[in-house]
Write a protein that binds this DNA or RNA. Structure first.
Lengths: 217, 217
DNA sequence: ATAGTATAGGGTGAAAACAGCTTTTTTTAC
DNA sequence: GTAAAAAAAGCTGTTTTCACCCTATACTAT
């Protein structure tokens, strides 16, 4: 029955979670964990050294290469591999963002193991797995006819750098110095990000960026 | 050899992590996972229905009843149970805080499984497990002779409530309204927390509170 | 009784953050 | 080479945050 098992890989930066999940899924006898990786770059390195997985479980916030980038890379280079996003948060933007990046499903880390196994089997058979979490977002997105509202947030490299520096006790003036930019330019970044995240304060921005898995503390 | 195994319980609010970890540790053949729980209150409810564990793996930030409270409760009611704290962050204050609450060790979720098994066995045999992470903090704490510096942060119920409301797009004025307090009283809370966390801005406060595992977003 | 302590509320000035709009410089594309 | 677009910088004014100093009340420990 080995061939009937779904072959998967796990990409997540928390070793205990990654390995624990691997054991948990292996025990289900329906899933075979080929390998696991610390982040996207690690996955790309390991991918050629194993049989091609049917499904890759993908964390979003990771050092070096995050889930969005890694999923896009997979869709460009291995479109036959299905990606199932795994996240702590159920915000609109990361869900829509991971789906747009090419993920076929989105599960919460608060899920039960049986549900995750169902999702993996579903996505392996049908290339997608739409649970209530995802279908709800998609439906509301269509019904409210807000094509931009829940769009994933695209940031320039400088905006992302700024966002990371925002998660600190630094003033904007200090951030400007650190980025070798005028405080006025920092003002532009701030205003752009406030609009993108629909917030009105730096604190709101930071919380929102964390929930949208764009930064990691 | 069943009786030679270390009996443990796992308290953590992320189901997949908790169950994954349980399977991972069970496979080591040196550890027996008696039960797991969602948070401190859930653990208290389940504790009488199982044999007493030797060690409890304890997450810190959890809904309803967090790791600090739960560890204190355990030390008061079941002092013979050893607590091993499990956290994502290596800040001074949660480490000192969990040790002061009664934990016998502190491990990161980024650890390798083998190291966690060692820690569990160590704490079971000796009632404590001091790794480099913990010993370093303790040593620096002594050497620098800063009895207060790294002290865990104690908050009044109102301060905690304020801290949670701080993690948002709300202004202090709005927070004051929501807490039915004068903005001046909110000012007092803010100043007290800025001192306790050694920060100078609301953003710094929020990041610090997250890293110290006092709040959860 | 009263000194100590924790909590709530008050006022003011300065610094930082926020908002909006304009201009210059640099990149990019045709 | 030049037009369009994007990034960086400037200007002005308002709001919020931050810092510091103060008073009042209520609880509590000796």
């Amino acid at each position: 029955m080995q061939t009937d098992k779904v072959n998967i890989a796990i990409v997540d930066d928390h070793t205990l979670f990654r390995q624990g999940l691997a054991h948990l899924l292996t025990e289900s006898n329906e899933i075979n964990v080929l390998f696991d990786a610390d982040n996207g770059a690690d996955m790309i390195r390991k991918l050629p050294t194993y049989p091609l997985p049917d499904v890759i479980l993908m964390d979003i916030t990771m050092p070096i290469m995050n889930g969005y980038e890694t999923t896009k890379w997979l869709k460009a280079n291995y479109p036959e591999i299905n990606v199932l996003a795994l996240s702590m948060f159920e915000e609109d933007k990361p869900i829509i963002g991971m789906l747009k990046s090419g993920a076929g499903g989105y599960m919460l880390k608060q899920s039960k193991a049986a549900d995750l196994v169902s999702a993996i089997k579903g996505i392996s058979a049908q290339s997608f797995y739409i649970n209530e979490l995802v279908s709800g977002k998609l439906l509301r997105n269509i019904q409210n006819n807000q094509p931009v509202k829940n769009a994933p947030i695209g940031l320039s490299p400088n905006e992302l750098k700024f966002l990371e520096l925002c998660c600190s006790d630094l003033t904007y003036k200090q951030i400007a110095d650190m980025m070798n930019l005028s405080p006025h330019t920092i003002d532009n970044y701030r205003e752009a990000l406030f609009q993108k995240f629909e917030v009105k304060s730096r604190t709101g921005l930071v919380i929102s960026a964390l929930k949208n898995e764009l930064i990691k503390i």
